[in-house]
Every structure is written in C-alpha cells, then in structure tokens.
Simulated scan of single mutants.
Amino acid sequence: MQDTHPSTGTPPLELIRQALEHLGHMVRLTEEAGATTHTVVVATGLEAPSVPESFGQYLVGVLAGAVGHDAQLSSDLLAQGVDAQAELQKKVISLIGNTNNFRTEKEILFRDTKRNAWMAEGIVHALMVLRAQHPSDCVVGAVHAVATLHPIPTQQGLDSVALYLDGTILVVAIGESKASRENGTDQLTEAAQIFRDIDNNQYGAQLRAELSTFKAILPPDLKAQVSDALWRNNRCYLPFIAHEAEFDLHARRLVLDRLSPPVDRKRLIALRLVDFHSFFDAVADSMRAAVPLVVI
C-alpha cells in the first residue's frame, strides 16, 4: 500500500496515473493527408493550461522510477523518503533550472539547447507511453515497450526507441525530438540526418541493447520476433518537431524520401505551440512543484 501525500491525500503513483490519463484525454495526434515523402501527424490539445502541468508531473514520475520498460506504471522502483526527494529535487533543477528567468546569453543557451531539448524528449516519452493505452495516429498500433528517458540533456544516442504492433508484426519505432521556436524545417533536416545514420548502420549497438532489454519484458508470443533483424527490417522513423513558427509540413522532403522505411513509417509528428516559451516554462514550473508530491 502506497502512502498518501498529507496535503493532497493522493498516492504518488495515482497522481502520475491521473496526469497520464488526463494527457490521454486532452492531446490528440491525427494523421493528415497530402505529403508524398512522409506521413504528417499533427498534435492538438497542447495549449490547455492543464496539459503542461500534467506533462510536468509525468516527467517527475519518470525520473522517480514510476514508468517501466513495458510502458506501464509501477511503484516497485518508485523513489521514497526525504533523501530520495532531495536527490530528485537536485536532479530536476539540474535539468530545468531554478527559475524561468533566462537573461544572459549563457542562460538563454541553456534554455534553448538543454532545458527545452530534454523536456521535448520527455514529452515524446509520454506520447509513446500513452500509445500503449490510448489510440492515436502517432503510430498505427499499440506500444508494448519503451526505452528509458535520458537522464542527462543532450546525452548521446537515440532520443526514443519503442516497440509497437502493426497487426501481428512488431515494429521498432525510433524517435528524434527537436524543439525550436522558429526553425522547424532546419530541425527536421537535423532529425533526418540521425535517421540516415541509422540507415547506414551507425546505431546498431544501441538498438540491439534496447531490444535485449525489451525482450525480457515482452510476452512469449511477441518475444520470438525480437532479433537483430527486427530493427533492420521493421523500423519506423518518428521526427517529433516542437515549434511555434509554422512551416510546410506537407512539402516534399528529399531528406525523408531517401530514408529506407516506406512513407507510412516515416511519420513527422508536429507539436505546434501557440506560445513556445510559455508552454515549456509551464512544464518546468509543474516539474518543480511535483517533486514533493511524487516522492514522499
């Protein structure tokens, strides 16, 4: 039995579950026709004030150990106690800072290249975990496994790796997240270069390691499909672009056209934000406030 928070009366895992469930009801990822070199998926519902709050609570829950590789919530590894709370508080501050006031060139660089980048990766993690429980056009089938969220901003390696079912066939979903207020097209090009490197076998070691972890938690009927050939033959590329300034999502993109997967497995996920900085500031505020609610 989990302890309940003295002020909210809510067990930490229930708080995280409620945040995730709220996101499942509020955020919609919908496929749009019109592109020829890739598939466009547009996210809506991100602007509601309650959405960044829920994302922040979820991200603290992930850092505290509440989300497993099976894309399910569990209290088994959830941090507890005063020392763990202090450790988590320190970790959150290192990732997002003490405040949302960024004035110097160094502070603005931290916001734009580390803080927002890490939170964008975390939002992608949340969207993939949501796909385990809620239908959406993020990918065509339910997610059954997700990689651990990077604990360090700009950590080397792939931003997101997951397994989903397309009918009865497992597919490796490989995501690359980018967050830029004004340069969506440039960020998409950068993401596509990572996918080109995958096509050129430069990430085989990481993908094999992730698949080995996934295999351990899959049910027997799916476990048999997991091998080195899986990521080589059945992979889906997911560039997630968080942006404010509009760019042409449906334009012919040679950088995507040249990639190995078919069009329906090159899915541009557009996370359009009306007020880019306010959104990420609100997520950061929620994270700072959530630490004493998640670890008690």
Rank of each mutant, 00 (worst) to 15 (best):
L109N: 15
L73R: 09
V40Q: 08
D3K: 07
L63V: 00
I108T: 10
N98K: 13
L15K: 09
A79G: 08
G45A: 09
L59R: 02
D76G: 06
T10F: 11
T4H: 00
G97E: 08
T10E: 15
T113H: 11
F55T: 02
G122Q: 01
T104W: 11
E21Y: 07
G34E: 08
G24I: 04
P6S: 04
T10R: 14
G68Q: 01
T30H: 10
A120I: 05
N116G: 01
A71R: 04
S75A: 15
A35K: 07
M119F: 06
A86G: 05
I108R: 15
D76Q: 14
P52I: 03
D3E: 11
T10Q: 14
G61H: 06
L73T: 02
N100T: 12
P52V: 01
H5K: 07
N116H: 11
E47W: 02
V82I: 03
A19T: 04
V27G: 03
I93D: 13
K91R: 13
S74N: 06
E107I: 01
G24C: 05
D70M: 01
A66D: 02
E121K: 05
Y58N: 05
K114N: 09
L15M: 13
R115T: 05
N116T: 11
I93R: 15
P6M: 02
V27Y: 03
A84R: 01
H38M: 07
P12H: 00
H38I: 05
A35R: 08
E53H: 15
E32S: 14
A48C: 08
G122P: 05
A79T: 04
S7R: 10
L59Q: 04
G56C: 01
S75D: 15
H22M: 06
L63S: 05
A120K: 07
L46C: 11
A43Y: 07
V51Q: 10
S94I: 00
Q72G: 00
N98W: 04
T99G: 10
I96M: 09
V67A: 04
L15T: 09
M26F: 01
M26V: 03
I16Y: 04
E53D: 15
V51A: 10
